[in-house]
Design a protein around this nucleic acid. Sequence first.
RNA 1: AAAGCAAGGGAAGCGAUCGCUUUUAUGUUGAGCAUAAAAGAGGAAAGUCCGGACAUCACAGGACAGGGUGGUGGCUAACGCCCACCAAAAGCAAUUUUAGGGAAAGUGCCACAGAAAACAUACCGCCUGCUUCUGGCAGGUAAGGGUGAAAAGGUGAGGUAAGAGCUCACCGCAGGGGUGGUGACAUCUCUGGCAAGGUAAACCCCACCCGAUGAAAAGUCAAAUAGGGAAGAAAGAGGUUGUCCGCCUCGCCAUUACUUCCGGGUAGACUGCUUGAGCUUUAUGGCAACAUAAAGCCUAGACAAAUGAUCGCUGCUUCUUAUGAAGAACAGAAUCCGGCUUAUUCCUUGCUUUUAGA
RNA 2: GCUGCAGUAGCUCAGUGGUAGAGCACCUCCUUGGUAAGGAGGGGGUCAUGGGUUCAACCCCCAUCCGCAGCU
Length: 115
Amino acid sequence: MKQYAFSKKYRIQKPNEFSYVFSHGKKFYTKHLTGICVSNDLSYFRFGISIGKKFGDANKRNRFKRLLRESFRTSTFRFLQGKDLVVLPSLKEKILDYQVLKEELNHIMQEMIKK
RNA sequence: AAAGCAAGGGAAGCGAUCGCUUUUAUGUUGAGCAUAAAAGAGGAAAGUCCGGACAUCACAGGACAGGGUGGUGGCUAACGCCCACCAAAAGCAAUUUUAGGGAAAGUGCCACAGAAAACAUACCGCCUGCUUCUGGCAGGUAAGGGUGAAAAGGUGAGGUAAGAGCUCACCGCAGGGGUGGUGACAUCUCUGGCAAGGUAAACCCCACCCGAUGAAAAGUCAAAUAGGGAAGAAAGAGGUUGUCCGCCUCGCCAUUACUUCCGGGUAGACUGCUUGAGCUUUAUGGCAACAUAAAGCCUAGACAAAUGAUCGCUGCUUCUUAUGAAGAACAGAAUCCGGCUUAUUCCUUGCUUUUAGA
RNA sequence: GCUGCAGUAGCUCAGUGGUAGAGCACCUCCUUGGUAAGGAGGGGGUCAUGGGUUCAACCCCCAUCCGCAGCU
């Protein structure tokens, strides 16, 4: 059961780490999401969400982050080593659907593995 | 039944699996990790519109400037909130709303229209007299017409050359007195024939209140980096060599440099950080807001920011119907309280008006 | 978390309580063989929204919505 754990250690939290990912990462696009990926020196996969004020209220932003976090937690691609991934929402089409977000996140991670 | 007004309550419940944050306990350990238990968003957490607590800075006292409040009496830590009452306005009513002091302290403004918009005045009129007589001049008057949001109380009667509070009745207004009320004010009575518009959410006057900045406040530890202050050591020290001379390096007076300390403080970490004008129940005082007393309870503390996902059963609403389907709003703590405002869903109770029936 | 500014025609902006305006743009006509330029005329406004004060509000007061900027 330990395999589904997702504590703070697996998150990107510091502003310095976010800016490093934004300046050095490779981008992957889907209809509602944008993923930025970069390699790190750690032995596990780290995940971060960046969402701005233009997406909506604090309630909508919080719900978007929770749904994406749950999608990442139950995903099967999260046992790669030495990767950092930051996910951004698309501002044109705002969506709060768990199934759609989970499929698109898996699609991004598949593309990441191929490269 | 419809329309409306007011008050109050809630923000579906229980359970399962996976996962997150904090605390406690145990085990182990260098940090940490593992296991178990407990707790884990709101009525508005929102807007930041007011008032406080708390922190830092400033400050003898007082005054000016600036800002705010503005019927009366209460309540409160405080308030512009709340409660009760008074007055005015809106509504058939239940009920609601009101920055509701002062215009005789002074200044300003009142477009257009109108004769005249505030030291008053007379356009059309009405009446009297004179006259050069389809007109003009002088005087009286403010009833009527007309303008305007507003023009020297209103209606009726008397009176007059025509008129006029000129006189009278009722109503309104102003002043004095009595009674009731803590008070705003109400009511009764007497006097005055009416005293000269509005605007203070225009300046202003009066009464009362207000120091500034806000937890990203403030404090502690402290890599890095630049510069500052103080102290120390030596008139030489070190190396070469067995010793001296000699040579080399550093230093001498100053600067620089060395060591130590102080001070400063970025990234980062910690404190502030949740026991408080606290919550629930009962009793008492009060019309109420609220206050007092007793008993019980501990109830989020994150920092790119924890509450999520998938299901089952029951309950609510709607539609079809006797079984299904759909729906459940506004919205997420960020130092903490008391309010206000705004967004939004469901339910309950009371009252008013109209219609229909008994 | 805190603080400030703005909202007026399709766009950029004026507007000191008394009829809402300018430039560009749009439409019609003239000019030209035709177009541009030029000339003449015209249309277009919930003054962000809702209340209040006033005889009268873009303007004064209160509340809300939306946008922008600053501190950090």
